[in-house]
């Protein structure tokens, strides 16, 4: 039971992370390849504040989201003038830059590579309470995205992706929308990071690498770009599948390679046969 709740939490983390990435990649059409950096910033901020400064976990999570959004905007502004491919390459580089930053500068609990020892408030100190809180946060995030999808802001995002000239001719600056959606994507990633830390109880830099950025690409690629059901479907299907591998008794030394080989295969097949994913409304541009 406890393990099922853990899997539920994990799925929720990836749903929130995918929602943020989908806003950026799917709705706005910017090839973000470095989302794991913001996930890590959120996780480290929340866990660090909680462990070293005794900030309660709810506040720390919000702080994680805010700090991740700020870091996201700060890293995004210089890249704003890059076009398509070079933008993707630069964001890809962010993974490696932030890995070294986490590895060399982030605080550690003595005697370990990372952080542990989160103090949870009483209501979420038991697995069931934690799961309900995480589920609640996920539903809230889905609701926010749902609202955005149908709002003028959501339409402006899609216009930024499809016809920036049209947006400009209406006197709106596409860059303004790109910056705000990037901040929003950062905030979602940061929140997902904080919840990830609460789910795992231990974080270290190896969780926030290129592989994690690729994983979110697989999640929304399989689920569907520019689609909220897609952001939910991808993590559910893929986490259920890889956890299923454990249930059928595959040795744990093989689960990680099989998972990453599966992600690789899915990326190849998606690009070949179904670039918009299962229920997507948009496909990988060009």
């Amino acid at each position: 039971m406890e393990h099922l709740l853990f899997i539920g939490n994990l799925i929720c983390v990836w749903i929130i992370f995918s929602l943020g990435a989908n806003l950026v990649i799917g709705y706005t059409g910017m090839m973000a390849m470095g989302q794991a950096a913001y996930l890590g910033v959120g996780a480290y901020t929340a866990a660090g504040l909680n462990i070293f400064f005794g900030v309660d976990f709810f506040t720390a999570s919000l702080a994680g989201a805010v700090v991740a959004a700020v870091v996201a905007v700060l890293t995004f502004l210089p890249l704003l003038r890059l076009d398509g491919f070079y933008f993707a390459l630069a964001t890809l580089g962010l993974n490696f830059v932030f890995f070294d930053l986490f590895h060399n500068l982030a605080p550690r609990v003595e005697g370990s590579e990372g952080l542990y020892g989160l103090e949870m408030p009483y209501i979420i100190s038991r697995p069931v309470g934690l799961f309900i809180a995480i589920l609640g946060a996920t539903i809230l995030c889905v609701a926010i995205c749902w609202r955005l999808d149908r709002s003028p802001f959501g339409r402006a995002l899609r216009a930024t992706r499809d016809k920036p000239e049209a947006l400009q001719s209406l006197g709106k600056d596409p860059r303004k929308f790109q910056i705000s959606v990037w901040a929003l994507g950062g905030a979602f990633s940061g929140l997902a990071g904080a919840i990830y830390a609460a789910t795992l109880f231990y974080i270290d830099p190896t969780l926030f690498t290129l592989n994690t950025s690729i994983a979110v690409l697989v999640f929304i690629g399989v689920g569907g770009l520019a689609s909220i059901p897609g952001s939910i479907l991808g993590p559910v299907v893929l986490v259920a599948f890889t956890e299923g591998l454990r249930f059928i008794g595959l040795p744990s030394t093989l689960t990680a390679p099989i998972q990453s080989a599966l992600y690789g295969l899915l990326l190849v097949l998606l690009m070949m046969f179904r670039r918009q994913g299962l229920v997507g409304n948009y496909d990988f541009k060009d």
């Binding site: 090839m31 398509g84 491919f85 993707a88 690729i214 690409l217 690629g221 093989l254 990680a256 390679p257 099989i258 990453s260 080989a261 992600y263 690789g264 295969l265 899915l266 990326l267 190849v268 998606l270 690009m271 070949m272 046969f273 670039r275 990988f284 541009k285 060009d286």
Partner: peptide
Amino acid sequence: RRGGGMFAVFIASLGVALIFDALYLV
């Protein structure tokens, strides 16, 4: 041939790298 562009090929290429990395890891 199926109309994929530079990004599609780039992502598929990442996928190929993932598959082989996993193979060599095993």
